[in-house]
Design a protein around this nucleic acid. Structure first.
Lengths: 201, 201
DNA sequence: CCTACCGATCGGTAGG
DNA sequence: CCTACCGATCGGTAGG
């Protein structure tokens, strides 16, 4: 298991560096230095720099998908508890995945463009399928009248961008705890799509 | 004015390339090729690659500030029309600046980290001052009871991230027009902070 | 996991 | 705005 541990350490270091300096702003020597080996020695553990990025992005994509799967397993189609509860659960799950590993989440959100074409296309497809869960839940809310008359695609993009913005400032041991953020962001998200527009002067 | 025009063309090309590939993913040769000159010839017009990035980021920062200035000139402190109207105006202004020049806005949002330390610090300060306007407006709303009991800092970060997410997908001539996005995003933002939390099962 | 090395490309300068 | 060129660094390989 030494190999597995070493590889893990390399991906941890790469996540931190990609998070801070971006994929293109990080050299393989930077990663190697962080785990105290020579630059060329890195290739005893990884096939390429792309390979490391792919590992990080793919694992994180799977974690987002698994979290949403768990939510929908409890109430597919939002039939029992309704779209409001479903949306809150999806938002909480998303915040959870982000705050649980902010560095990998940040790389997932910002550096997936650095993937080569085939892998980038794969992630683009999965991101869209993931976002579609939010769109579907919002659409149910709009159709049943529980939510305001909002474009589900616009609202989903708005909400997910709002939450993903966490990667720019969230720090464990920061002023606001992860559960508090999840609570606040769930409230903001639900209210954003709920109710009707207030009269304006 | 030939010089000015050439410089502008270089910044336009750089904005498009930085938007698509990032600052570190773009070489000075890439920029030069886009304006049909030799790589080294670029230095007849710009001092450095950093210089080009700084121009783009600084101009865009100023456009965001000017747009918010215009809003607050109409109602400083949100005393006349109230924090709801003020927030809607700020959101609309922000969406306007983003959609008016999506490439420069994207560079401003994503590539300011590539600035050298002094300039990055400058932009960081100005970004915080800009975000503080949203925080202040939300705080007024919370204090007067017009808004829900929400942490103004969290809500402001949430809203601005939501809107900035536009740079990832907005395209002129896309499915939704810029004014329609501004309208929808203003509604989502106002509702997010307004009213009280609904009872949950 | 190391040393030694590769060709390619990087941002930038000199001199016209 | 060009040609010619610079040292530094890039991701990666060979061979142990």
């Amino acid at each position: 298991m030494v190999e597995t541990t070493r590889r893990q350490a390399i991906e941890d270091a790469a996540s931190a560096l990609f998070h801070k300096h971006g994929y293109d702003g990080t050299s393989v020597r930077d990663i190697a230095r962080a785990v105290d080996i020579q630059g060329a020695s890195l290739y005893a553990h990884v096939a390429s720099k792309q390979d490391v990025l792919w590992s990080i992005v793919e694992q994180t994509a799977s974690r987002f998908e698994a979290a949403a799967d768990a939510v929908e397993a409890g109430d597919p189609g939002a039939v029992v508890f309704g779209p409001g509860v479903q949306l809150i659960s999806l938002v909480r799950a998303h915040v959870g995945v982000v705050t649980e590993d902010i560095e990998r989440a940040s790389v997932f959100v910002h550096e997936w463009r650095a993937l080569d074409r085939a892998r980038r296309d794969d992630i683009a497809r999965r991101r869209d399928a993931y976002e579609a869960r939010f769109r579907a839940t919002i659409a149910v809310g709009v159709e049943t009248g529980a939510f305001a008359e909002v474009d589900p695609a616009l609202a989903a993009a708005y909400l997910l961008s709002a939450i993903n913005g966490l990667v720019a400032w969230y720090r464990p041991n920061g002023r606001v705890s992860a559960p508090a953020i999840a609570e606040t962001y769930a409230d903001l998200s639900l209210r954003a799509v709920q109710g009707h527009r207030t009269a304006r002067p």
